[in-house]
Design a protein around this nucleic acid. Structure first.
Length: 463
RNA sequence: GCUCCGUUCGUCUAGCGGUCAGGACGCUGCCCUCUCAAGGCGGAAACACGGGUUCGAGUCCCGUACGGAGCGCCA
């Protein structure tokens, strides 16, 4: 069993999404469960909006979790119970040191060049000397020896116990801290594999101390390398640390997103482009790399283009519908849908994102009079318009309105005019699509239909 | 500062003692071609540095440099 345990203090960012993906892949690969736990014990920063944003992001990415999402906050009583059990068996103790005392201790230690680990004077104090004052519960961590974490990704990592402090379990108001809550929840929920960002690596040492104190079996830890921005620095909002919904809005496919994210830090030989089913079949912790990866939009775009080409026309249309709905933009009218479906093979081959695809379908949605863009306008010179006028006559007589028949007519026309096909096709494209770039003109003619095509050509010729 | 970790083309990566160091994105030359894509065939491009170990190191060990993460009564 794996879990994804985000704190609901913002959207589901790209690093979290990949962590979730790896957990999901691992669970699916091994026939295990994948649960979602919201780490909302910080009441100040946690918001229901952020929780909902995480659900949304997970759903969009297609990372379905098993069972209901669990609120960590709802389990505070259980966390406190474990802390008291630890206290009862002497594995933890009450510390009456005030924040001021601790701060002073740390400052002094720093000034003297010693590690700023707080050594509580209450660790071995006689309970009869305990004052009637607020206290925190600290773990009585071993001072000798070392703590070893066998990390499934990082390998064997060891810390000297003298470098680990007596971490706080319960705050002075009696509420549990994250470090305790995570261990108790992971244990109680039966999590066998803790796959999370490498920024948690040192937490694994502290947490395994708690596991040992409770005599609980430790889960397998796997700390996956972090994702950096294009400049190698920590991923920030200027880079790719956007919420996953931002990627949705940019027109990326969830399938492509999963593919790209999976390849960031994990590999399967030379495979670059693969389906989610393949990723599930191939995924393994031993193929996860150790070093951080940079987020690269260019590669994401390429992969997205490949997935768009591989997608079925109807599926793409469905995804466009969903995107427009999510962006609260007007839906595609029924008639245009049919045309869009007919034009889809030519459209999807040229687009890297759904947004590009929608944009390139302008000519299907637009109504006369068309508004040629700059490049299209340049193609519609006086001579070109005259040419289109002559061509239109031939086209009007076309016996059947099909790609092959139309191509025959236009080619014959170009030859008669002593022109290369391109000299005719480009003005046609400008007239029919108002753009200088589009799918093949004969495909455009067929999809647009006889009436509309001729009307546009006439409009351009007369323009 | 202390602790831990990392370092193969610009980027993502393969490699698990003997390879012409492979693939992908991007860049680029040619072909195809009604535009743009897509596609086909090429090209430039990497083992951070220094010591060991070994007949032989990208692969093992040590050090250096650089990079990262952590060091809260945050998660």
């Amino acid at each position: 069993m794996t879990r994804f345990a985000p704190s609901p203090t913002g959207f589901l960012h790209i690093g979290g999404a990949r962590t979730a993906l790896f957990n999901w892949l691992f669970a699916r690969r091994n026939g295990g469960r994948f649960v979602l736990r919201i780490e909302d014990t910080d009441r100040e920063r946690s918001t229901p909006e952020a929780t909902e944003a995480i659900f949304e992001g997970m759903r969009w990415l297609g990372l379905e979790w098993d069972g209901d999402a669990i609120s960590q906050f709802s389990r505070v009583d259980r966390h406190a119970e474990v802390a008291h059990e630890l206290l009862a068996r002497g594995a933890a103790y009450k510390c009456f040191a005030t924040k001021e005392e601790i701060d002073a201790f740390r400052e002094k230690a720093k000034a003297e060049g010693r590690p700023p680990l707080f050594l509580s004077p209450w660790r071995d104090a006689d309970p009869s000397t305990h004052p009637d004052a607020p206290y925190v519960v600290r773990l009585r961590a071993p001072r000798d020896g070392e703590t070893v974490v066998e990390d499934a990704v990082q390998g064997r990592v060891a810390w000297k116990n003298e470098t680990l402090d007596d971490l706080i379990l319960l705050r002075s108001d009696g509420t549990p801290v994250y470090m305790l809550a995570v261990v108790v929840d992971d244990h109680d929920m039966g999590v066998t594999h803790v796959i999370r960002g490498d920024d948690h690596r040192t937490n694994a040492a502290r947490q395994s101390l708690i596991y040992h104190a409770m005599a609980w079996p430790t889960p397998v830890f796997a700390h996956i390398p972090l994702i950096h921005g294009p400049d190698g620095a920590k991923l920030s909002k200027r880079h790719g640390a956007l919420g996953v919904e931002a990627y949705r809005d940019m027109g990326y496919l969830p399938e492509a997103m999963r593919n790209y994210l999976a390849r960031l830090g994990w590999s399967h030989g030379d495979d670059e482009f693969f389906t989610t089913d393949q990723a599930v079949a191939w995924f393994g912790l031993d193929s996860v790399g150790k070093s951080p990866a940079r987020f690269d939009f260019a590669k994401l775009e390429n992969l997205n283009g490949q997935h768009m080409r591989a997608a079925s026309d109807t599926d793409l249309l469905t995804q466009i519908d969903a995107l427009l709905a999510a962006q609260q933009k007007p839906a595609i009218p029924p008639l245009a849908r049919e045309k869009m479906l007919a034009a889809m093979p030519g459209l999807k081959e040229r687009a890297k994102t759904l947004n590009e695809l929608i944009d390139s379908a302008y000519y299907l949605l637009a109504e006369r009079p068309l508004q040629p863009d700059e490049k299209a306008a340049k193609l519609l010179t006086t001579e070109a318009r005259a040419l289109l006028g002559r061509l239109t006559t031939h086209l009007q007589n076309a016996s059947e309105w099909s790609v092959s028949g139309l191509e025959e007519i236009v080619r014959a026309f170009a030859e008669a005019e002593g022109l290369k096909l391109g000299k005719v096709a480009q003005p046609m494209r400008a007239a029919l699509t108002a753009r200088a770039v589009s799918p093949g003109v004969f495909d455009v003619l067929e999809v647009l239909g006889r009436e509309e095509s001729l009307a546009r050509l006439v409009e351009a010729a007369d323009g």
